[in-house]
């Protein structure tokens, strides 16, 4: 192969990889959305809100945590089911981010990851991830 051929091959590979990365980026991107959009349930998204006091309950048989988030602005509610154990400091959280997908039939947001923001002094807030 001549030099030009190598360059062409290189450019093709590079383009292919760029396409591969862009696809991966799009597929793994979890946008922050308002509850209304999350309810469409067409992709993995993240929703944020404050924990409705007293709404959380852990069902041991299902190993799931149920709770309700409230959008601080619109005061809208979103029921969430998180398949996992209750994170430490969960009840004290100032805000909770749930990452997952809305389930149309269960009428619940099925979270597979939670970000729990606790009041703390490290520059105002501390976040911990649970998956």
């Amino acid at each position: 192969m001549n030099k030009k051929g190598y360059y062409l091959l290189g450019a093709t590979l590079l383009l292919a990889f760029a396409g591969f990365s862009a696809t991966a980026f799009k597929e793994t991107l979890t946008p922050y959305v308002p509850y209304e959009m999350a309810r469409k349930g067409d992709r993995v998204v993240q929703v944020a809100g404050a924990l409705e006091k007293g709404s959380s309950s852990y069902v041991a048989q299902e190993e799931s945590l149920y709770f309700t988030l409230q959008d601080p602005k619109t005061k809208e509610n979103m029921d969430v089911r998180y398949k996992g154990l209750k994170p430490a400091n969960f009840e004290d959280a100032i805000s909770i981010v749930a990452i997952g997908r809305y389930d149309e039939t269960a009428r619940k947001f099925e979270a597979d990851k939670l970000l729990v923001k606790c009041p703390s002094k490290y520059q105002g807030a501390e976040v911990k991830t649970y998956s």
């Binding site: 591969f20 990365s21 991966a24 980026f25 793994t28 991107l29 979890t30 946008p31 922050y32 959305v33 959009m37 998204v45 993240q46 990452i99 990851k113």
Partner: peptide, 18 residues
Amino acid sequence: TRFMENPGQVGPSFYNRV
């Protein structure tokens, strides 16, 4: 993604895959 409709993030699966 801030300039798009809804800002988002990519998780570890993005970095691992790529």
